[in-house]
Design a protein around this nucleic acid. Structure first.
Length: 287
DNA sequence: AGTTCGTCCTGTGCGC
DNA sequence: TGCGCACAGGACGAAC
């Protein structure tokens, strides 16, 4: 479940290992991996051969490699996507979807994705509010690690929504990069139940919540991200270890680190929300 | 027009 | 032992 910290770990790896290199070959092993590239796999390959990858960039959970053609290879890791820098001699992974080889003969880049929710495409760039973005990323809000992120703007965007607070946190057009793990952790840090209506929270309370989300993602980034199994790894195949620091997410039945009450799991949008029943009581008016 | 929901996908782990 | 099902869940498009 790569969210902002995990995607940023991958971006840094790509920036260090593939930026400045020229693509010599591309193989697409599964059509779903390039389904968002509407002209098809053949066109995808043709647009990349001979191109130099100039930089690795990110907004929220989207990642892209800029090309000297002015386009970019856009990647979304979905749930289980990995970008691996590996020796050509390393055996193909079971779920290897796309392989890039380079003119310098060095390590190759592999897109591996078990559940195929992720994918790659070559996209044109567009300028939105002073930022150069691949076209499909144009609607994604700035994330809290963007130097131009404006907390007051984000607070207003959250409070404009007429929904439950966790739905707003997960809405990538409001603030990007937050997924189920860091939403639950931020809500726990602020002692807020996920079903609290956005329009009944004060501006300062929303500001504290967004700041908590930023803090918890920064702490996760500092230790290489969160991973529960081998699905999320950096470009060298290594896992982060923020899972040891989670207070609420995935902690059903374990004591709340603040009050000791057993963490509960509740159904939320066909998935789960984890919270402390004592620190984070349900809103009275909630269904 | 804004919000909610169903869908895509595969591997793991549980209960019967 | 083996089967079936719940679950993990980001993002998009359809439905309301």
């Amino acid at each position: 479940m790569p969210e902002l910290p995990e995607v940023e770990v991958v971006r840094r790896g790509l920036d260090g290992h593939v930026a400045g290199r020229t693509v010599a070959g591309v193989e697409v092993f599964h059509p779903r991996a390039v389904r968002r590239h509407l002209p098809g796999a053949f066109d995808f390959v043709g647009r990349l051969i001979g191109q130099t990858l100039t930089a690795a960039r990110r907004r929220g959970k989207y990642l892209w490699l800029e090309l000297d053609s002015g386009e970019a290879v856009l990647a979304h890791l979905g749930m289980s996507g990995q970008m691996l820098v590996s020796s050509a001699k390393a055996p193909a992974e079971k779920h290897l979807r796309v392989r890039f080889t380079f003119a310098d003969g060095g390590p190759e880049l592999r897109f591996v994705d078990q559940r195929t929710f992720g994918g790659l495409s070559v996209e044109e760039m567009t300028t939105v509010d002073g930022a150069l973005l691949p076209v499909p990323v144009a609607h994604i809000a700035r994330d809290p690690m963007d130097p131009a992120f404006d907390l007051d703007d984000a607070v207003r965007a959250v409070r404009r929504k007429r929904t439950e607070i966790k739905r707003a946190l997960l809405d990538q057009t409001v603030v990007s990069g937050i997924g189920n793990i860091y939403a639950d952790e931020a809500l726990w840090r602020c002692s807020l139940h996920w079903a609290r209506p956005t329009d009944r929270l004060t501006g300062p309370a929303v500001g504290r919540l967004l700041t908590a989300a930023t803090d918890v993602m920064a702490a996760a980034l500092a230790v290489g991200g969160t991973s529960f199994d081998a699905l999320y790894v950096n470009v060298n195949g290594q896992s982060g270890y923020f899972d040891r620091s989670l207070a609420a997410y995935g902690q059903e039945g374990r004591p709340c680190p603040r009050c000791g009450t057993a963490i509960r799991r509740e159904p939320f949008m066909n998935r789960s929300s984890f919270s402390c029943p004592r620190c984070q009581p349900r809103p009275r008016a909630a269904r």
